[in-house]
């Protein structure tokens, strides 16, 4: 018995060593950005701190209209998170709990669009948005949010399908409308899946640099697009990019994503478990 216990302890220690080593490997590249964000812009890149120019962080938020970019980031993320989380839920509920001719075919279409390479529609969509005046407006995001996302519709459907029928029937007998049932019976028990969808949508929309690049002119860009367009230049000369300042900005920009993930992760696992994605 004693030998078994020592062996188990040994296994435990090995496990922690492996995990911590892996953490170092996975974390180090991100650390490199941080270390480099503190170097002076006249020095070359470094693998550990070679200076502490905290001024880079100040420059990161003052050299460009950081506040304005941030507001646009928040607007886009807000529209996407609220809209997508709500509308995907509504559509998912329809597929989980309501019946109508053609339901099977429609659901297979949803699954198929999950597999469709987005790029096939993106370029013509971009041209059409230009024609109908959606450019330099938030309409592309509003429309996207209304339509929901196939993957999230799928998640919601899985989740709602697992909720016992009895609850719904009881409410119906009490004279509750279908939408009322959705709001009062289904939504309150769906916190894990709602959080999952909200966190994932936030990550996606906060980090998306491409769509704003295509649909918005620069004074409406969110941070993701502004940063990738290398705006930290000396005297507006595109040949002179201040990389340490850009790195500082990237760090600041990543903070909200990391926080939402750190806070939301508990629900994320729970949300996915309960949707029965396990198949």
């Amino acid at each position: 018995m004693v030998a078994g216990k020592t062996k188990r302890q040994f296994n435990r220690i090995t496990l922690y060593i492996v995990i911590i080593l892996l953490c170092l490997i996975f974390f180090y590249p991100a650390f490199v950005v941080f270390a480099n964000s503190l170097r002076s812009y006249t020095s070359t890149s470094t693998l550990f701190f070679n200076g502490f120019h905290w001024k880079n962080y100040l420059l990161a938020v003052t050299m460009i209209p950081f506040g304005s970019y941030l507001l646009h980031s928040l607007a886009i993320a807000g529209i996407s998170v609220i809209g997508t989380t709500m509308m995907s839920g509504v559509v998912g509920f329809g597929f989980a709990r309501l019946y109508g001719p053609g339901k099977n075919v429609l659901f297979i279409i949803i699954l198929a669009t999950m597999m469709l390479p987005g790029i096939v529609t993106q370029v013509p969509q971009f041209l059409i948005y230009h024609r109908i005046g959606f450019i330099n407006t938030y309409w592309p995001w509003v429309v996207g949010a209304i339509g929901g996302s196939p993957f999230f519709i799928f998640l919601y459907k899985q989740f709602f399908s697992n909720i016992p029928k009895e609850m719904e029937e009881a409410a119906r007998i009490d004279g509750c409308s279908t939408f009322g049932i959705f709001l009062r019976i289904f939504i309150p028990v769906s916190v894990p899946v709602i959080t999952t969808v909200a966190v994932m949508t936030f990550q996606g929309s906060w980090g998306d640099a491409m769509s704003p690049f295509m649909y918005l002119s620069s004074n409406m860009w969110p941070l993701a697009t502004a940063l990738i367009s290398a705006t930290y230049t000396l005297n507006g000369n595109a040949n002179v990019v201040l990389y340490p300042v850009l790195e500082a900005a990237a760090i600041i920009f990543a903070v909200p994503s990391i926080i939402t993930f750190f806070v939301g992760q508990r629900y994320l696992v729970e949300g996915i478990v309960t949707t029965g994605l396990k198949g």
Binding site: A30, V33, Q203, L246, A250, S257, I258
Partner: peptide, 10 residues
């Protein structure tokens, strides 16, 4: 979850 620009720089 790191922004694309950060991964690129990294």
């Amino acid at each position: 979850i790191l922004p694309t620009v950060a991964s690129g720089l990294i």
